[in-house]
C-alpha cells in the first residue's frame, strides 16, 4: 500500500503529465521538444505502473517499468540518429520545414 498518499493522487498526477506530453506533441513544432514530450508521456505511464504496482502489491508493474525504460532509451537513440541524418540535408529542427512529402 502507498502510505498516506491515496492512489488517486498518483493517477491524477500521471494523467496530468500524460496530457501535457500529448498536448506538447500536437502543439510544439521542434522535433527535439516533441521527442521530450513523448518521453514525458512514457514516464507518466511509468508512474501509473508503479502506483498500481504498489497499490495491488504485485511486482509485474515494476518489471514493466524496466522494459519501458529500456525501450524509451532505444527510441531516443534511434530518433536522434534520424534527426542528425536529416540535418545533413536541411539544417532545421522545426518539423514544419520538413515538407518535401505532400499530397
Amino acid at each position: 500500500m502507498i502510505g498516506a498518499v491515496p492512489l488517486s493522487y498518483y493517477l491524477l498526477l500521471s494523467a496530468i503529465l500524460f496530457t501535457i506530453g500529448a498536448g506538447g506533441v500536437l502543439i510544439r513544432r521542434n522535433a527535439i521538444i516533441i521527442l521530450m514530450c513523448v518521453e514525458m508521456m512514457m514516464n507518466a505511464v511509468n508512474l501509473t505502473f508503479v502506483a498500481f504496482s504498489s497499490y495491488l502489491d504485485s511486482a509485474t508493474g515494476q518489471i514493466f517499468v524496466f522494459m519501458v525504460m529500456v525501450v524509451a532509451a532505444v527510441e531516443v537513440a534511434v530518433g536522434l540518429a534520424l534527426l542528425v541524418e536529416l540535418n545533413r540535408h536541411k539544417e532545421a529542427v522545426n518539423i514544419d520545414e520538413f515538407n518535401s512529402l505532400k499530397g
Binding site: V25, V38, M41, V45, V71, E75, G79, L82, L86, L101
Partner: peptide, 14 residues
C-alpha cells in the same frame, strides 16, 4: 519519412 514515422510511432506507443 523516418522522422515522421518515428515521432508518431513513439507517440502511439505511449
Amino acid at each position: 519519412a523516418g522522422l515522421k514515422y518515428f515521432l508518431l510511432g513513439a507517440f502511439a506507443s505511449a
